[in-house]
Every structure is written in structure tokens, then in C-alpha cells.
Nucleic acid binder design. Sequence first.
DNA 1: CCATCGTATTCCCATAACGGAATGCGTCAA
DNA 2: TTGACGCATTCCGTTATGGGAATACGATGG
Lengths: 116, 116
Amino acid sequence: MAVMARAATTSDAFNAIAEPQRRDILGLLRAGEWPVTDLAQELGMSQPQASKHLRVLREVGLVRVRGVGRQRRYSLDADGLRPIHEWVGGFEQFWNESFDRLNSYVQDLKQARQEE
Amino acid sequence: MAVMARAATTSDAFNAIAEPQRRDILGLLRAGEWPVTDLAQELGMSQPQASKHLRVLREVGLVRVRGVGRQRRYSLDADGLRPIHEWVGGFEQFWNESFDRLNSYVQDLKQARQEE
DNA sequence: CCATCGTATTCCCATAACGGAATGCGTCAA
DNA sequence: TTGACGCATTCCGTTATGGGAATACGATGG
């Protein structure tokens, strides 16, 4: 049985978006469809690299492709990001926590002062 | 110069949370502080594995440690998740898109019907 | 001071990533 | 039909992963 080292980048959206360039690609695709070459140039990466990253994104369902003549136009399919947003959202109260604590601390101070 | 293969898991929160078990750890830590052994048992992983994952999480600043006697208690530091939430949140309109399209399609239908 | 508890670290291994360079391949224009 | 264009794929090399097992290490209790 295969000893898994690190989960494949294609195993899920979490792994796919761990790569900065792939996040760049997704960001760019918010602007609409892009043929590979243009996308690569826009983001300053080689065409093969762009193709490879796009393949990963396609495999996890974050982008779609459409053949137009001899080009392949990629577009966003953001549904796969939703689970991530929800998972991370489950921690929202905790990154407000320190602020809340500070806040209640300040409240306590105020109250203590009034009671002096 | 070092040829980078894949970004280190410790390079940022995106990479750190790509590993399911680390997400499990973070989830568990919402319940409060945990000593390593208990945490490992709760999540069904070996103690060394737990320690290793916790190290990664600590290096990217997602958890804090506190020494209590001979145990080390880990707790959540969720601030580092915020950038992720914001990045993913930037795509929210796009995963509502298909719904929106369906919606406007229905509107069009209604309107067309009234104009008959 | 010594044995033990709670953890962290180290070693070993199989796997796969990402980048660069080269190449394969389908489609369109002449 | 042929050549060029737009992409995808393959090969190579370096690096680091996560799991298991063994071990090192600091703090505590006796």
C-alpha cells in the first residue's frame, strides 16, 4: 500500500490553493475567461507552468475549460471554495476573541473606576 | 540556490491547514487548552505525530503553548486564519453566481409571461 | 539523586511537488 | 497538405512531506 507522504495537491481544494500561484490564477479568473498563454503572461509564469497549475485547479473542480478554436479558455468555478470559507468561518469568533477580551477588560476598568 | 519543490507546510497558514489532521487539531482547540497526549488520543493519532503537527501549527502562529508542570498545553491562536477567510471571501459572489443566474432567468421568464 | 511521566526530536522510507526544458498534439490558415 | 499556433505532457532534479519506531530531554515525585 502506498505510503502517503503529503496529500496530493489534487486531493482537495485546501491543498490546491496552498500554492500562491494557483491563488493568483483564481484571482485573475474573477475577471472572466482566459486563454492559457495570456494568463501565463499576465501572471509572469511560463506557459507549461500555467497549464500544470490549471490542471490541478481543474482536477479539484475550481476551474472549467472551454475549447474555442485552438485556444482553451479557463474560467472560475468557485463553488469548491465554499467549504473552505465555511470551515475557516467556524473560527471567526476566535479571532475576534482577543479583541473581545481586551474590550471587556476595558469595560471592567471603567466600571472599577466608577465604583471608586 | 535551493530549488524549491513545494512550499513548506510551515511557510504560511494556507499550507499548514492543507493537512486534514491539522485542521482537526485546530477544531479541537476551539474547546480550549489541550495537553499533547490527550489531544493525540482524542484524535486517534500517535503522540509524536501530534507533536509534529503542533510544531507546524506553532511555527505558522496558529497555536500557542504554555508549560504547566511537565505538560505542554496548546491553545488556539486563530488570528492567522483571518487572511484565509478574507481571501476566500473575495470569491463569495462567484459561488452565488449560478444561483443569481438562475434567479435572473426566472425573473426574465416571469416578465416575458406578463408581456404576452 | 533516580525513576518516571509528558513531550519533542531524530532516523528511515516512499511519494510527489514545482520549475525548467523539450516535445507531443490538435486546430486553423494558406 | 503543410506550417505555425496554442496548449498539454513528459522528463529531470532537488526538496520536503507524513507515518512509524526509537530515542532524547526537561520536570516532577519519592
